[in-house]
Amino acid sequence: MPHPEVCVCYLLRERAGRWEVLLGRKKHGLGAGRLVAPGGKLEPGESPEAACIREVEEEVGLVVAAGALERRGVIDYRFPSREAWSQRSHVFVCRDWRGDPRGSDELDPEWFAVDEVPLERMWDDASRWLPGVLAGGRVERAFVFGDDLATVVEPGPSVA
Rank of each mutant, 00 (worst) to 15 (best):
V144R: 13
G99N: 07
L134P: 08
P131R: 11
D96R: 14
I75T: 03
C94D: 03
E58N: 10
V74D: 05
V133W: 08
P157M: 14
V153D: 00
R98C: 05
R88C: 05
R121S: 02
G137E: 06
D76A: 10
A37N: 01
F145Y: 15
G39L: 09
R54W: 01
D96Q: 15
P155S: 04
L42A: 06
D105M: 11
A37K: 09
E43W: 14
P109Y: 07
V6G: 06
V117F: 03
C52T: 14
E59D: 08
A65Y: 09
R121K: 12
S81H: 12
E110N: 00
P101K: 12
R128T: 01
D115L: 03
E106K: 07
A150D: 13
E20S: 05
F112S: 00
V56Q: 08
L149T: 04
D124V: 01
K26V: 14
G45R: 12
L134S: 04
E120R: 09
E106V: 08
E110L: 07
C9H: 08
H90A: 01
L149K: 06
H28A: 14
G146V: 02
V64Y: 04
V133Y: 11
S86G: 10
P48I: 01
E120L: 04
A16P: 00
L35K: 11
P131C: 09
V64M: 02
M122H: 02
R18P: 06
L119S: 03
A16E: 14
S127G: 05
R34A: 09
P38H: 10
A37P: 04
F79L: 01
D125I: 02
E120T: 03
L149R: 13
V8I: 13
P157G: 08
V152G: 01
G39E: 05
L149N: 04
E154S: 12
L119W: 09
V8M: 09
D76M: 05
S89M: 11
P4D: 02
R102P: 02
L69Y: 05
V153P: 01
V63I: 12
G99S: 08
G136D: 13
R82V: 04
D147M: 13
P4W: 11
V21Y: 02
A135R: 14
V117N: 03
V36A: 12
G31N: 06
E58P: 02
S89R: 14
A66P: 07
E106D: 12
T151R: 11
C52M: 08
V153S: 00
I53A: 03
L30R: 11
P101R: 15
G67F: 14
G29Y: 13
D100R: 12
R78D: 03
V6E: 15
A51D: 02
G24T: 00
V117E: 00
A84L: 10
G103R: 15
P80E: 01
A68C: 06
E140P: 02
C52D: 07
D100T: 13
E43K: 15
W123G: 02
L35Y: 12
D124C: 01
C94W: 11
S158P: 10
G29H: 09
H90F: 08
R71N: 07
F145T: 00
V74C: 09
A50Q: 11
G24D: 07
G33S: 09
P131G: 01
H28N: 03
G99I: 09
A142Q: 14
M1W: 13
F112P: 02
V159F: 14
D124L: 05
Y10F: 15
A84T: 04
D76P: 00
